[in-house]
């Protein structure tokens, strides 16, 4: 049996490019309209690394919260964190970078123990190559402004090695 009619045929266009949702650049939206921890980002924009502390049980949290995971209280206050610390671990990202970071490779990332407080956070480490670093190296806070498509001044924290005074 053969078809006795040829089906009609048309072309349907799809967009050349479909933009990924804005959040795929990995930096969260930081304003009061978008997040209830905006004060963390507001303070970071003013050069201060901070986090929440529970007014009821005194627990210090990181990342910052809106509910205390220790006592479920929600009376939390922002408190400043030290801007210096030591390198607990570090590595370098080469081939496995996600969207938005592929132009940056290779880059160093690691874990920083903040000085004098029980907070250990992951961070990009700028200003040093992997081979120049050792566990225990002193590092200091650095703020980066995020230049992107979003009409909002976003910031984030990184760390860099502490330079010697004579430099």
């Amino acid at each position: 049996m053969t078809d006795d009619t040829t089906p009609s045929r048309d072309t349907v266009a799809v967009p050349e490019r479909i933009d990924f949702p804005r959040l795929l650049d990995f930096y969260n939206l930081q304003s009061e309209e978008e997040t209830r921890i905006h004060e963390f980002y507001d303070r970071l924009r003013e050069d201060s690394l901070s986090t929440t502390r529970c007014d009821e049980c005194d627990a210090l949290h990181f990342p910052p919260r809106i509910v205390c995971p220790e006592c479920t209280g929600d009376d939390l206050s922002y408190t400043s964190l030290p801007h210096e610390g030591t390198l607990f671990a570090f590595s370098v990202v080469r081939g496995s970078a996600p969207i938005g970071m592929t132009d940056d490779v290779p880059f160093v990332m690691g874990i920083v123990d903040l000085e004098g407080v029980d907070v250990r956070l992951s961070a990009r480490i700028d200003g040093a190559a992997y081979d120049d670093l050792s566990i225990g190296d002193r590092v200091t806070l650095k703020i980066v402004d995020i230049d992107g498509p979003r009409d909002e001044d976003r910031v984030f924290y990184r760390f860099e090695p502490v330079r010697s005074v004579s430099e």
Binding site: P63, A89, S96, D104, S122
Partner: peptide
């Protein structure tokens, strides 16, 4: 928000 943003994914995290 606080770890992925720093490039912390499988190979880099397990290397730490």
């Amino acid at each position: 928000e606080f770890d992925g943003v720093n490039g912390l994914n499988a190979p880099s995290y397990f290397s730490l």
